[in-house]
C-alpha cells in the first residue's frame, strides 16, 4: 500500500479518531500514516453491531409478549451471547438459557440476580426492567 492510497473515509466507527497504518512513501520507504477510516472495514464493524441490535430488538418484543425474561434483552444489549454470559457469571450454560424464560427468571434468588446484574454492569432493579438503563454521568 502506498501512503497516498491509505483510505481516508471518515468512518463513523472511529468516532473522529484516527488509527495508524504502515504504508510506503514515494521512495518505497515505510512510514506511519494516519487513517480516518475505511468503508470496507466500517461496513463489517457496523454489521456486527447491527446483529446485536437486531437480537436485542427481537428479545425486547418477546419480553413484552411475556415469553422471555429481561435478562435476554440486556445480554444482547451489552453485546454478549449466551456462551459469554455463562462464562462471565460462572454459571452453567443450560442454566443461563433456562433463565431466559420469563417465569423461571421471576423466581430467581436475589443472589443470582445480583450475579447477572454484576456481569451486565447493572443494578438488580435495572436488570428487571426491559429497557436501557438511564445513562449515568460517568458510565462508559
Amino acid at each position: 500500500m502506498r501512503a497516498d492510497e491509505v483510505p481516508q473515509d471518515n468512518s463513523s466507527t472511529y468516532a473522529g479518531h484516527k488509527k495508524l497504518l504502515y504504508a510506503r512513501d514515494q521512495h518505497g520507504t515505510y512510514t506511519q500514516v494516519q487513517s480516518s477510516g475505511w468503508d470496507v472495514e466500517a461496513a463489517a464493524t457496523q454489521d456486527a453491531v447491527a446483529l446485536y441490535e437486531q437480537l436485542a430488538e427481537q428479545a425486547l418484543q418477546q419480553v413484552h409478549a411475556g415469553r422471555r425474561s429481561p435478562l435476554l434483552y440486556h445480554m444482547y444489549r451489552c453485546r454478549m451471547e449466551p456462551t459469554l454470559l455463562a462464562q462471565v457469571t460462572g454459571l452453567c450454560r443450560w442454566r443461563v438459557r433456562w433463565h431466559f424464560r420469563a417465569k423461571p427468571f421471576q423466581r430467581l434468588s436475589d443472589a443470582l440476580l445480583q450475579r447477572y446484574a454484576d456481569a451486565l454492569n447493572l443494578s438488580v432493579a435495572q436488570l428487571k426492567q426491559p429497557a436501557p438503563p438511564a445513562p449515568q454521568a460517568d458510565s462508559p
Binding site: M1, K19, L21, A23, A44, T45, A48
Partner: peptide
Amino acid sequence: LGHIVRMQEEIGTGGAGFRFI
C-alpha cells in the same frame, strides 16, 4: 465474511492483517 475482514482490518493491525507491519 465480515468477521474475516474485521479480524484483518479492525483496530490495531496496521492494515492487511499485520502484513504491512
